[in-house]
Design a protein around this nucleic acid. Structure first.
Length: 424
RNA sequence: GGAGGAGUGGCCGAGCGGUUUAAGGCGGCGGUCUUGAAAACCGUUGAGCGAAAGCUCCGGGGGUUCGAAUCCCUCCUCCUCCGCCA
């Protein structure tokens, strides 16, 4: 949620328009609604004041006097009720509008859409592989990936990892968690099913309703699309001690996404699944620290790719390509030989106070100070399924085996190679 | 799934229709005393909206009433017992 106090700021509207024209209009409307709300609120406050001060007199009055005052106060009370219900309508309208406006991007993020994303870093050398196999062919050849049997049970966009494939996934999760906990992140194992307000808190709802899975019934559970949802919301409605900042969490969880609107895209292989493992990093920081913390978080994510010896590049997203809650985002894109291009494997964002305002996560800069909103950051550290497929493709050998990156070998009983016969 | 009990400020806890403008304690902060500290004593001590006056907030929502922390309905959360269960 954006700061309602900034609603009349022209530069805010200009920046929002760079995401999409419609958001500037929404901000304009919200500002009008907000002013209507303030006026009515003040009016009701005054009426209530009158009601309070006069109703204390009721205690001492008797007989006719009491009866006539009661009649008067009854009218006052009815007026207040009437106006309050109108205020409630406006308030809901205001909330509904506010929840649909995205965060304000930092001014130094590139203008435009995806095509204007700015490359800010590049690492590793692209492997020279003759006729690289796509990971699904390689995986099926090695007997570690099975899409057919998965779709028999669950339909498209599901997979079974088998034997060395399943072990490799587990090794990756453990490796990433070990790396991040040694960088000072606290490991968490959170719920994967959450209530609606939790999804609203981090900004997945209401605008991405159709991409979320939920259980049936009047009070459904939502399946988390990312651990960011739970890691951030876990501190909802809290006032943190300054000494506790920055809060740094890491969790490996399954993530669930319906991928509505991406029909026909990445239908083959592990790239876009309805269910996937992701190691997620979340930070809660003081406002003035968030930009530096974002760089560090991005470096933590990059560290995983470097240790795994996977070539990648880093891009700063343009305003039109950023997620709803983000004010700045770095995407890490790993090299995929079969596609001869870089593909997203991590997205690291500074959400500034956008999620903190929705979730009321605050801190006290010094003892006695007023609480202030924190900044929240999140980033994949990193997507496990995509890492697995990147390893298969980048480390494939001419005889269709896969070399295991050295850093993972301790997690795989010291084995160095995946072959059709298993780990060797 | 069945039967009970409970949710009040940072924490504990009183209040059960109108001096609650939420007692009291603990903790925190400031002070007196002290070489310093402890103890003792005194003072102070939440959040949101608003330019201010003021208004709102006793788990959430709704209702009764001139007036609700207090009465009623409903939902949520936690606890205890029984049943079932990885």
């Amino acid at each position: 949620m954006i700061d309602p106090k900034l609603l009349d700021d022209e530069s805010l509207k200009t920046t929002l328009a760079k995401r999409n024209e419609k958001y500037a209009k929404m901000a304009e409307e919200l500002s009008l609604i907000n002013n209507r709300w303030k006026l009515l609120k003040a009016e009701i406050d005054n009426l209530r004041h009158e009601q309070k001060s006069r109703s204390t007199m009721m205690r001492t009055l008797k007989g006719d006097e009491a009866a006539s005052l009661r009649d008067e106060l009854k009218k006052l009370s009815d007026t207040i009720k009437e106006k309050s219900s109108l205020l409630l309508v406006i308030e809901n309208e205001k909330m509904e509008m506010a929840l649909h406006i995205p965060n304000i991007p930092y001014a130094d993020t590139p203008d435009g859409g995806e095509e204007n994303n700015r490359e800010v870093g590049k690492w590793g050398s692209i492997p020279e592989i003759e006729n690289p196999l796509p990971h699904w062919e390689l995986g099926e050849h090695l007997g570690i990936l099975d899409f057919d049997r998965a779709s028999k049970m669950s339909g498209s966009r599901f997979s079974i990892l088998k034997g060395a494939g399943a072990k490799l996934e587990r090794a990756l999760i453990n490796f990433m968690l070990d790396e991040h906990t040694s960088s000072g992140y606290t490991e968490m194992s959170p719920p994967l099913l959450v209530k609606r307000d939790t999804m609203v808190g981090t900004g997945q709802l209401p605008h991405l309703e159709e991409d979320a899975y939920k259980t049936s019934g009047d009070d459904p559970y939502f399946l988390i699309p990312t651990a960011e949802v739970v890691l951030v919301n876990s501190r909802r409605d809290e006032i943190l001690e300054n000494s506790e900042l920055p809060v740094k969490y890491v969790a490996a969880t399954t993530c669930f996404r319906s991928e509505a609107g991406s029909y026909g895209r990445d239908v083959r292989g592990l790239i876009r699944q309805h269910q996937f493992w992701k190691v997620e990093l979340v930070k809660i920081t003081a406002p003035e620290e968030s930009e530096n913390e974002l760089i560090e978080l991005k470096n933590n994510a990059e560290g995983i790719l470097k240790k795994l010896e996977l070539p990648f590049r880093t891009v700063m997203l343009a305003k039109g390509d950023m997620g709803f809650a983000a004010a700045r985002t770095f995407d890490l894109e790993v090299w995929l030989p079969s596609e001869n291009t870089y593909r997203e494997i991590s997205s690291c964002s500074n959400c500034t106070d956008f999620q903190a305002r929705r979730t009321k996560i605050r801190y006290r800069p010094n003892t006695g100070d007023k609480p202030q909103l924190c900044h929240t950051l999140n980033g994949s550290g990193i997507a496990v399924g995509r890492t697995l497929l990147a390893i298969l493709e980048n480390f494939q050998t001419p005889d269709k085996n896969v070399v295991i990156p050295p850093v993972l070998r301790p997690y795989l009983g010291g084995k160095a190679m995946i072959t059709p016969e298993g780990l060797k």
